[in-house]
């Protein structure tokens, strides 16, 4: 009788725990910006890929698009992260309003924003200084080159960039550009973190992203953030619609080479 009861209890425990395992974790992102912006396509690509991973882990990723003029009245408590194309003062105000949520800056390149080290802004897009440094390194080697420094390009093939370019184009019938790469990367690094750590609280997510991230942005190196909130990354040099070089430029940049690009410290 006792054994029977224990068996019965065990069955109940097993059923309950298997139900718990099957419970779906829902994760919500908010995008603030224009609906026509290429960054949004990248965000959507990132959401699709996160859901493809999520189907194996019982995780579901949702996206809400919020227009800039509705920010004031909107309740942001449920979001794991904000993805935005708003710039300068508006971006700063957003960061002040939502202090405990990671805010991904997808478009603003200003150096000042990096120097300010605003705790909850994560800059996916490289700063102007990063780009300028990349170009300077390249021109030290090839003085006549008029290449353009970019964070992404559709002709980039290395490090499986080819694969990302291919699937983006297949889905959106347009080439992935710097902004769409930024949108994709922001979503993907967040969902990767959810998958690995089960963190679904925005404040904890912000802390993890700033201190423990190790992300495959399909640009080669393992990516993480500086104290300035800037994503460490290589910069592509593009000429005539072709990637002709990568910065840090080999033989020019001193190790640790990624630190040869952009601003490293906060203003005192």
């Amino acid at each position: 009788m006792l054994i029977k009861n224990i068996r019965f209890l065990l069955i109940i425990v097993m059923v309950v725990s298997s139900n718990l395992n099957a419970e779906i974790i829902e994760v919500d992102f908010a995008y603030i910006g224009h609906e026509e912006h290429p960054a949004l396509l990248g965000v959507k690509q990132g959401i699709d890929e996160s859901n493809l991973q999520g189907q194996f882990l019982n995780q579901k990723y949702n996206l809400e698009i919020i227009s800039e003029n509705k920010i004031q009245k909107h309740n942001f408590t449920k979001y794991i992260a904000i993805l935005t194309t708003v710039k300068s003062e508006e971006l700063k105000n957003l960061a002040k309003k939502l202090t405990d949520i990671p805010i991904f800056n997808l478009t603003d390149e200003s150096n000042e924003l990096r120097i300010n080290c605003i705790t909850n802004i994560l800059h996916i897009t490289p700063s102007s200084k990063m780009k300028a440094d990349a170009l300077k390194q390249w021109q030290t080697k090839t003085p006549d080159s008029k290449a353009n420094p970019q964070s992404w390009h559709y002709s980039f093939k290395k490090f499986a960039a080819r694969d990302l370019n291919k699937r983006f184009k297949k889905n959106y019938k347009t080439n992935m550009d710097d902004y769409s790469w930024a949108g994709w990367a922001a979503v993907k690094m967040t969902s990767d973190t959810v998958a690995r750590t089960k963190i679904i609280n925005a404040k904890n997510m912000l802390n993890y992203l700033k201190t423990k991230l190790s992300f495959d942005g399909q640009k080669g190196s393992d990516m993480n953030f500086r104290v300035t909130g800037q994503l460490r990354q290589l910069v592509l040099l593009v000429e005539d619609n072709k990637v002709i070089a990568e910065a840090p430029v080999r033989g020019i940049a001193k190790p640790p080479t990624l630190e040869s690009l952009g601003i490293l410290d906060c203003s005192k």
Binding site: E49, L52, Q53, F56, A160, D163, L164, A195, D216
Partner: peptide, 8 residues
């Protein structure tokens, strides 16, 4: 799967 970081 390289971009989903898994062994299936």
């Amino acid at each position: 799967s390289e971009s989903t970081n898994m062994l299936h």
